[in-house]
């Protein structure tokens, strides 16, 4: 037996390639559609809790302090979960800027109302502002910081302490960058509590600062 020249059946591979491209494209588009559906559901959720904030904003002082605990408790649980979902989607590289800006606007309104409740109604609430970015060259510990904040929050909640954590992407054009400039954020992560700025904080360090 001698050397043989064997052939490659190019038509099969080309046909398979075409079919694969078609299936891939279909899968990609269906996946995109379902992803968009997820995003739209999040937008609806933001709009729903925004409307509750609007109610608080139009109340007079007395009524504001009276109804604040009830309405804010409704907002708080939903907004935290919403934030976690957004962070997860962001972590998977799928967020849209419009979604984030919408959420940041809501957060800022929420923060304004909570500060009003603290000053006018004397409610006790710890306010933590957290600036992060998804750009890996600017922050390699931001994902970890998110986990630490989450854990610290859960512990404080179990102790029946009132805490609000507001997270902003300081590199996002729009609300994020604006607030980062206002608070003079120069690095990430940056945590602001009681007018003091901190870098990365572990769960225990956070609990120490917040006690």
């Amino acid at each position: 037996m001698g050397d043989q020249i064997k052939k490659i059946d190019y038509p099969f591979f080309i046909s398979a390639l075409i079919i694969t491209i078609v299936v891939f494209s279909s899968g990609y588009m269906i996946g995109w559609y379902l992803s968009e559906k997820n995003n739209n559901e999040i937008i609806d959720e933001i709009n729903n809790i925004n409307s509750l904030l609007s109610v608080l904003q139009i109340l007079h002082a007395e009524e504001f302090c009276k109804f604040y605990p009830y309405i804010i408790s409704k907002i708080e649980a939903n907004s935290w979960k919403l934030g976690e979902k957004l962070q997860y989607i962001e972590n998977q590289g799928r967020t849209e800027d419009r979604l984030k800006n919408l959420y940041f606007e809501f957060q800022y309104r929420d923060m304004t109302i909570v500060k009003k409740a603290i000053s006018e109604c004397k409610f006790e609430t710890k306010i933590v502002i957290y600036f992060y970015t998804n750009k890996p060259n600017l922050c390699q510990t931001c994902t970890a910081q998110g986990f630490e904040l989450s854990r610290a929050r859960n512990i404080l909640k179990e102790q029946n302490q009132s805490i609000r954590i507001y997270s902003f992407d300081g590199e996002l054009e729009g609300m994020g960058k604006l607030l980062a400039n206002i608070y003079n954020v120069t690095s990430y992560p940056t945590i602001i509590y009681n007018n003091r700025k901190y870098g990365f904080l572990s769960k225990d360090e956070l609990l120490n600062i917040l006690k």
């Binding site: 899968g27 990609y28 269906i30 996946g31 995109w32 979960k81 976690e84 979902k85 998977q92």
Partner: peptide, 18 residues
């Protein structure tokens, strides 16, 4: 952090194509 909600959020283009 998210519990079972994470399952629904996993659905993306790669998941569906797979």
């Amino acid at each position: 952090r998210l519990g079972l909600d994470v399952v629904g959020l996993m659905i993306d283009q790669f998941f569906v194509t797979s």
